[in-house]
Write a protein that binds this DNA or RNA. Structure first.
Lengths: 110, 110
DNA sequence: TTGACATGAAACCATTTGGTGTTATATTAT
DNA sequence: ATAATATAACACCAAATGGTTTCATGTCAA
């Protein structure tokens, strides 16, 4: 099967640098050094982020000559999307908002 | 204004326990001890999770007698939803998949 | 073939994270 | 009043996180 899932997609996406890497790779496939040039951190640190993203199956890299080209695999983000969608009812629903406001009024009385 | 945003919503939601807490609070407002009873960890640990969720403005608690009742504020999850939606084009769009496959073929030739 | 480039791999480090236990204070019920 | 309940506030801890530096290896170009 695919790589051991030591990191889940929620955790992979929790770091701003990793989110930026995903954005970079959405435009074009990039080698490690090219990705590194977009940040102020060292290549080694970038590689660690790439490893975490790989473990979450969000990216994968393949050797091409002396370079290792990474490309995006956005599918696992669906898990987050699905999780979030459950909560949409609570902000889409005006009745929920009304309920919240009423509860807040009750608080003040006490 | 609201509490210092030491933790952003992506990080808040990265922990499975915190995600479960949000689910619990989506059904009903709960006191700290009631939330704790759903887990095998100590109350102190639960309180730390609640603090992180509060800092991300996903929940808020108000004192009611000797209890502190927490309730859900799902709105900040929109930030995640919006971020994810950018990537939907890459899995919704069949042309993107074709592009990906073609690029892969090019790689092999080199 | 030799130097420059790209990556791999290891050791190390400070801070954060997710947890514990203990003690103290406020509130409720008897 | 007093015991039980609910939370608050600490101090402490091991492991994970996000970063560094150093050194080794493989590949390309001149």
């Amino acid at each position: 099967m695919s790589a051991l899932k030591k990191h889940d997609v929620f955790q992979a996406v929790a770091d701003p640098t990793r989110r930026e890497i995903l954005h970079l790779l959405s435009h074009q496939n990039l080698a490690i050094s090219e990705i590194t040039s977009h940040f102020s951190i060292t290549r080694t640190a970038v590689v660690k982020h790439l490893t975490i993203l790989s473990e979450a199956n969000l990216i994968s890299g393949k050797k091409n000559g002396r370079e290792k080209i990474y490309h995006l695999h956005p599918e696992p983000l669906m898990e987050i999307k699905d999780w979030i969608s459950y909560f949409e009812q609570f902000w889409d629903n005006k009745l929920s908002m009304l309920k919240f406001l009423v509860e807040n009024e009750e608080d003040k009385k006490e």
